[in-house]
C-alpha cells in the first residue's frame, strides 16, 4: 500500500479543519479566521501552515495542538504544523461566514479593511462607528482599546446598554 493511495484529498482535509474551533472564540473555526495559510502534501507527510493572529497570542500553540489532534483523530499520522509569519495575519482574511458567526456570538466583526489609513492619520480622525451585535444600534462607545484577548476591544451599546467585544482590524 503506498501513501498516495491512502492519503485523503486536500478538500476533504479542509472540511475537517472547518470543524476545529478557535480556542478563545469557539464560535468560529480556525478556517473562518483565516489562520490556516496552506495545506499541502509533502510526499506522504501533510504540512499545515498557520499564522499567529498576534505575536504574543497564547492561543497560537493551542491552535497548533488542536489541529494536530483533530487530524490525527481522522487517521492522519504523518503531519507537521508549521508557523508562517509573513505575510502577517490580517482581519481581512476572516471569511464572510466567520463574520456572521462572530456577530451571532455577540462579537462585532471588524468594520474596515486593514489596509486603511496610517496611524498618524487615524489618530486625528473620529472614532469608527461600531454597531451593537445585539440590537444593531450604532449609538455605541468604546470603553477600551483592549479587551479579553489582544484581538478585541471593549465597547458598550448606549441604547440597549449591553457591553460587547469588537474584533479589531489589523
Amino acid at each position: 500500500m503506498t501513501g498516495s493511495l491512502t492519503r485523503p484529498d486536500l478538500e476533504q482535509i479542509r472540511t475537517w479543519l472547518e470543524e476545529v474551533p478557535d480556542p478563545e472564540v469557539p464560535a468560529v473555526s480556525v478556517m473562518d479566521l483565516g489562520i490556516i495559510r496552506d495545506v499541502q502534501w509533502s510526499g506522504d507527510e501533510l504540512v499545515v501552515a498557520i499564522t499567529p493572529t498576534y505575536s504574543g497570542c497564547p492561543a497560537t500553540s493551542v491552535i497548533a495542538l488542536d489541529i494536530e489532534a483533530a487530524l490525527r483523530a481522522r487517521g492522519l499520522d504523518r503531519l507537521r504544523v508549521e508557523r508562517r509569519l509573513s505575510p502577517p495575519w490580517t482581519t481581512d482574511w476572516i471569511s464572510e461566514a466567520g463574520r456572521r458567526k462572530l456577530e451571532a456570538y455577540g462579537i462585532a466583526p471588524p468594520v474596515e479593511s486593514a489596509g486603511g489609513p496610517s496611524v498618524f492619520d487615524r489618530l486625528l480622525r473620529k472614532p469608527l462607528t461600531i454597531a451593537c451585535p445585539r440590537c444593531k444600534s450604532e449609538n455605541t462607545s468604546r470603553i477600551s482599546e483592549f479587551g479579553s484577548t489582544p484581538c478585541k476591544a471593549q465597547y458598550r451599546c448606549d441604547d440597549c446598554l449591553e457591553p460587547f467585544d469588537y474584533f479589531k482590524c489589523i
Binding site: 505575536s55 509569519l85 502577517p88 486593514a114 496611524v119 487615524r122 482599546e145
Partner: peptide, 24 residues
C-alpha cells in the same frame, strides 16, 4: 533582511494600537 522585515510587519500592526491608546 527579510526576516527582520517580516517581524517588523507583524509587530507594526500591534504597535499601532499601543500608540493610539497611549496617546489617548
Amino acid at each position: 533582511d527579510a526576516r527582520i522585515a517580516e517581524i517588523a510587519a507583524k509587530g507594526l500592526k500591534e504597535v499601532t494600537y499601543h500608540l493610539e491608546r497611549s496617546r489617548d
